[in-house]
Computed example of a mutant assay.
Amino acid sequence: MRVAEIMADFRNIQSYIASIRASPSAEEYNEEGYLVLRRCVAEAQALLAQPFQMQGAGKRDEEQDKAHLRRIIQDAAVRRFRAQKIYLRATAALRWVNSRAAILQGHRPHAGHAPALQQIRNTLRAELASITDQRVELSLRSTDTSAGKWLQEDPSLSVIQRLSGNALDRRVKN
């Protein structure tokens, strides 16, 4: 049941990311917030494309079944964790997009906009810096705890970080 809960969360986060729409003009295309959004979408697509590493298929005893189930829970937890981190970064970038649109009100940027645009750029950078692994884990665990979900089998943050790093290492090698 826990695997289904974690994967449902992962699916929901992925659908939120997939629904992100931003249409920068040619002039805005390389602005920081739009760069962050494109990076988040690319990371989310790569995460979806990453296969589960099946090990030990075939007949197994009860201990092997338990170990296999732990690997499945770990894989699901890592995917959900990474998706949540991407989502938090994407929503910070969307706040930047909306703030920028409110400042410019359909006009091209000019010197009078510079202080306000710098302020929202600084806010975006501060928000992105605040999205730490610890914050992501706390947000996920808090939500799970308040929903009364069973968390005893969930991997710790250090395990998630290690497994997430291993997944990135495998992707870089391929």
Rank of each mutant, 00 (worst) to 15 (best):
A67Q: 15
A46F: 02
A57F: 10
R100H: 07
I72N: 01
Q152A: 15
S99F: 09
A147T: 00
R171N: 05
L48I: 04
T145I: 08
G112D: 06
C40W: 00
P115M: 01
I131S: 06
A18C: 02
H113V: 01
T143Q: 14
L124H: 07
R100Y: 02
R135Y: 08
S146D: 04
K173S: 14
R70E: 14
V3L: 15
R171H: 07
A126F: 08
S156V: 06
G165D: 08
V78C: 10
S146C: 01
S158E: 15
P115W: 04
A90K: 02
D154H: 12
D169A: 15
A167W: 11
S156W: 01
R80Y: 07
E62W: 06
V172F: 09
A8Y: 06
I103A: 10
N174K: 12
L104F: 08
L124T: 03
H68M: 08
L37W: 01
S139N: 08
C40N: 02
L48R: 13
R71L: 09
R95A: 13
S158V: 12
Q50C: 09
I131F: 05
A26L: 14
A22K: 02
R170K: 14
A90T: 05
R100C: 05
L37M: 05
K173W: 08
K173H: 11
L124I: 07
G58H: 00
K66I: 11
S142P: 00
L47K: 09
R11S: 14
N166E: 15
R108G: 04
R21C: 03
E32A: 10
A167S: 13
Q119H: 12
R39C: 03
L35E: 09
L163H: 11
R80C: 15
R80T: 08
Y29L: 13
I131T: 11
G148V: 07
E63M: 11
K173R: 15
L151P: 00
R21P: 00
L48T: 12
I160V: 15
K66W: 04
A167F: 07
L128M: 14
N12L: 12
R141W: 03
S156H: 07
A167T: 05
A49K: 14
H68K: 12
A129Q: 15
L37N: 05
L94F: 01
L37S: 08
N174F: 03
V41H: 10
V78T: 12
I103W: 06
T145Q: 11
L48K: 11
L163P: 00
V136Q: 04
E137G: 00
M1Q: 08
D75N: 14
R141N: 09
L104W: 04
P51A: 13
V136F: 02
Y29G: 01
E137I: 02
L128A: 12
I103K: 10
N30M: 06
R95H: 13
Q134W: 02
A67K: 15
S156F: 02
A116Q: 14
L124P: 03
E43P: 00
I103M: 06
H113A: 05
L88F: 12
D133G: 10
L157H: 03
G106F: 04
Q50K: 13
L163N: 11
I120A: 00
